[in-house]
């Protein structure tokens, strides 16, 4: 039964991924591909400061986005799971997910409108007299990318944490209180450890895809907010250098996988 799906994935994912890896070891001169295996692309990727900066920045932004999103989302998930009346939980979850059925492109674009020089945010603060002149550090830089991505991935973090919190047997918390812990210590000794699988899932769900995000850095990032995906796109579609693009894609994947594995490993180790 599983075979059609497995075959589909194999053909459309595994084979293409293999092709990308193969490409990363080739070179391209204008339109002809040179199929001799070489590490030149990797050498270039590691030595050219452009690639290093972009890769470093991408990992940095993804990391910050992940932390911000998860930290902001946890209290919401906690609130919905523990303080909202059970009959209204579905409504809250629905409310949280609705904004994400707006076109992704338009959402990002609207953040540009909100954060811009005479955008919603600045004009609002100006008219309230909180600032005298528009603040500029929130558009066309990494901050804007972080804010926008933190917004874009909100439901993907809230939902797994919420599900993990919902699974916690409430009598465990009462047991902890009964055994002499207060609200705070119960949270840290019982609730949080039991919610950890959800937190880990949320972290990975945000961290891995954000590194490959193209639209957000392009629209709100400015020159200092560009990420590796923008360079991959440039290599493939503008510079006609598919092998270099493939190399960057492979490196990005490896970096993300490595960091995710380390993260999961440390969680396993320190949560036992």
């Amino acid at each position: 039964m599983v075979s059609p799906t497995a075959v589909y994935v194999l053909l459309l994912l595994a084979a293409p991924l293999a092709a990308v890896v193969a490409f990363s070891f080739w070179t391209q001169d204008f339109l002809t591909i040179d199929r001799t295996l070489t590490l030149n692309n990797y050498r270039e990727a590691f030595t050219d400061p452009i690639y290093r900066t972009l890769m470093g920045r991408s990992l940095m932004i993804s990391g910050v986005v992940t932390v911000v999103t998860v930290v902001l989302a946890f209290p919401i998930a906690y609130f919905v799971s523990f303080y909202v009346d059970p009959s209204r939980k579905a409504l809250w979850i629905f409310l949280i997910t609705i904004p994400f059925w707006t076109s992704y492109l338009l959402r990002v674009f609207l953040w540009k409108v909100i954060l811009g020089f005479n955008g919603v945010f600045n004009s609002g603060l100006l008219s309230l007299g909180i600032i005298d002149e528009p603040i500029t550090f929130i558009l066309y830089n990494a901050n804007a990318v972080v804010i926008t991505l933190a917004h874009a991935f909100a439901p993907f973090t809230i939902l797994p944490i919420y599900v993990a919190l919902e699974k916690i047997d409430r009598s465990l918390l009462e047991a902890s209180r009964d055994l002499g812990e207060n609200r705070m210590t119960t949270f840290f000794r019982v609730t949080l450890p039991l919610a950890m699988p959800g937190v880990i899932a949320a972290t990975l769900i945000v961290f891995i895809p954000t590194i490959g995000d193209y639209v957000t850095p392009r629209l709100v990032g400015g020159p200092d907010g560009l990420m590796i995906a923008n360079m991959i796109q440039t290599q493939f579609l503008k510079l006609n250098n598919a092998p270099m693009g493939a190399t960057l894609a492979v490196l990005a994947m490896c970096a993300v996988t490595a960091i995710s594995l380390i993260f999961v490993f440390f969680n396993r180790k320190y949560l036992r």
Partner: peptide, 30 residues
């Protein structure tokens, strides 16, 4: 079972740009 189901679910977390470029490579170049 576990590795097969895992592989099927991978696109859920894979950066979309990776899916995009790998398919592009196969379709156009290969």
């Amino acid at each position: 079972k576990a590795p097969i189901m895992g592989a099927i679910m991978v696109p859920l977390v894979l950066p979309e740009i990776i899916v995009a470029v790998s398919l592009l490579v196969v379709v156009v170049q290969v």
